[in-house]
Structures are given as structure tokens and as C-alpha cells.
Design a protein around this nucleic acid. Structure first.
Lengths: 166, 166
DNA sequence: TATTGTTATACTCTATAACTATA
DNA sequence: TATAGTTATAGAGTATAACAATA
């Protein structure tokens, strides 16, 4: 038979706890960004060479196109992105970073990297590399292309610490 | 300087992707449970020797006490838990598993374990142990006792795949 | 007066539908 | 007729506030 289930084998709890720790650090970094973590993702997506349309960005982030409208409204208000008419299709808008948006994005990425280091602090350098490598292999092998913004509601309750049984 | 940031070092993305994969499998398991993942957590908490009050359970899971009322309503409707008067305090209710609740919980735990194996499938047994061990160490070292049900909204948008920069 | 649990209300976030303008 | 984007509306989920019973 298998090992009896306990804390050591409770992947869901450990994964959730580490994820939560990371998210708390990331949330602190992304606190002032319009739209929060999603706003940051929009900035990242907008930083590519080929500016995408609103619809393309929405599909890439897995959010509704109406949500993308609100997100871009807030980002545009703070002059972090611009809506530019698509010369080939006057219905579509191409989303580009402003100079301020680019600066802000670089700063956010630097601080997010620091947040990662904070999460990994209990491990020594070799162990960090091992963990990054294993997670990366799992992520690339199991990523089924599902949109990233559709499972939030199920995540929270998975992560309570294990309790003793009767 | 440090290694240039790329996919290999993007902890947030890898962590989120693996988490998402696990949650999709877990969601399938917990689909029919009243309250979903949170209902499962209530069942787990209720399975301890010392039945807790509704307030204690709510605090343990990090949800509002009013949400706990709704959760318990649904679980009680399906006869998975019982509200029993606390002999020492007639205001409080002690939450206990029914026989059916205990049976259901055992079944859920067995299937969640299978879901874990599904997530870890790309790794060989030694690597799985390594990953479990590293995650467990991080989880126990970084767990700050923050309630587990308060970060759901921030999780989703962190996990879009990395994109190329301009 | 404070606390447990319930109920009623309001708020936030997201999705659905309708609308404009283009194609 | 179909599509990109916007706006208006409605829905789910959660929190806030008021309430009853008890301490």
C-alpha cells in the first residue's frame, strides 16, 4: 500500500500555503496598480512588440472582453496604456504601453522578483533551483492552456491546514 | 548580477500553473459537495475529536461567520453534519459529522490523493518526494497563520503565461 | 454589556445582453 | 450577417448591520 496520508504528503495544503505566501507578497507589490494583479498582467501583455487588440488581450488573460474594457479604462486613466486605432480595422484598438507604463512595469517586475526571493528564503540556493526546476517541469507538462483567471473561487478553501481525525 | 528573468525563474507563473492544475482536479472531485471546496474543509474540520462551534470553524477557515451559517445549512440539508447544542453554552452549536458525512469525507480524501498523483504524474517517484519535501518545508516555514480563504481573488490574474518584452 | 448564531441588506466582481460602429 | 468595443443590467458571492437568545 501507499504511505499513510499526513502532512508530508498533503500536496494541496503545501502548495496552497506556498501559493498564499507568494500572493501576499505579490499583492503588496501590486497594490497600487489599477486592476491589481490583472492590471499587471495587462501591462505585461501590452509590452510585447506586436500590440494586441483588446479582444486578443482578454482571451490571453482569460477574462471577459467587458472586464477588459474596465481594466483598460482604469489603466488609461493613469496613463499607463494607450488605446490606438488599428489602421487595418477601424473597429479594433491596439493596446500599447506608455513610457510611464513601461517604467512602472519594470519596477513591478523587479519587486516581484524580490517577492519570489522572500518566498524561497527558507531554502538554500541549490534547493531553490531544484524547486524552480521541478515546478517549471510540472507547469510546462501539465499546462493545458486553460485560461488563468477562471479558478479563483475554488482555490481558497483548499488550503486550510490539515486537522486530526476522530 | 543575477540570472536574467525568464521562464525558468518565473516562480509565480510555475506555482500558479501547478496550483491551477491541482485545483482543476480537486474541483472535479469536490463538485458535488455542498459548498464545494469550502464544504470539504468544513467536513474535515468537523471530523476532529473535539467538535468546534460555528464561530471556531469560521475562524479556522477564515470565512465570515455568516458564510459559515450558509455552508452549514447546505451541509445539514444533505445530512453530512449536525448542529448539536453545546451543553455548557446554550448560545453555541457544536458541529459534528454524521455517519454519512464521515463516509463521504473518507471517499473525498481518497480521491483527492488520486488527484495529487495526477498532478505529479510528470515526475518520477524520487522527484515527487523531493518536491513534496521542499514545498512542505516552505509551507511550514512561511505559514504565517493567515486565514486560507482570503486571497482567492488575487490568485487568478497572477498566472498568465510569461510574454516576450518589447 | 458582550457573545453566538441568524436574517436582511448592501456591496463587489463578473457575466449576459443590448447597442454602436465598423467589416 | 458578423465582429470589436462599449454600456447597461443582472447574477453570484461576500461582507455589514440589525436582530434574538443567552452569557
Amino acid at each position: 500500500m501507499t504511505t499513510p496520508a499526513g502532512v508530508e504528503t498533503d500536496l494541496g495544503w503545501a502548495l496552497g500555503t506556498v501559493m498564499r505566501t507568494y500572493l501576499q507578497a505579490a499583492h503588496a507589490v501590486l497594490d497600487g496598480v489599477p486592476g491589481g494583479p490583472r492590471g499587471y498582467q495587462v501591462l505585461t501583455a501590452a509590452s510585447r512588440d506586436e500590440p494586441g487588440t483588446q479582444l486578443a488581450l482578454a482571451q490571453q488573460l482569460g477574462v471577459d472582453r467587458t472586464v477588459m474594457t474596465y481594466l483598460l479604462d482604469d489603466l488609461e486613466t493613469e496613463r499607463l496604456i494607450e488605446r490606438r486605432p488599428d489602421p487595418a480595422d477601424r473597429r479594433a484598438r491596439r493596446i500599447t504601453l506608455t513610457e510611464a507604463g513601461c517604467t512602472r512595469l519594470c519596477d513591478l517586475e523587479r519587486r516581484l522578483r524580490a517577492a519570489e526571493e522572500h518566498v524561497l528564503a527558507p531554502l538554500d540556493p541549490a534547493e531553490r533551483d531544484t524547486l524552480r526546476g521541478l515546478l517549471h517541469r510540472l507547469a510546462t507538462r501539465t499546462d493545458d492552456g486553460t485560461s488563468p483567471c477562471q479558478v479563483a473561487d475554488e482555490i481558497s478553501a483548499m488550503n486550510a491546514p490539515p486537522t486530526r481525525r476522530r
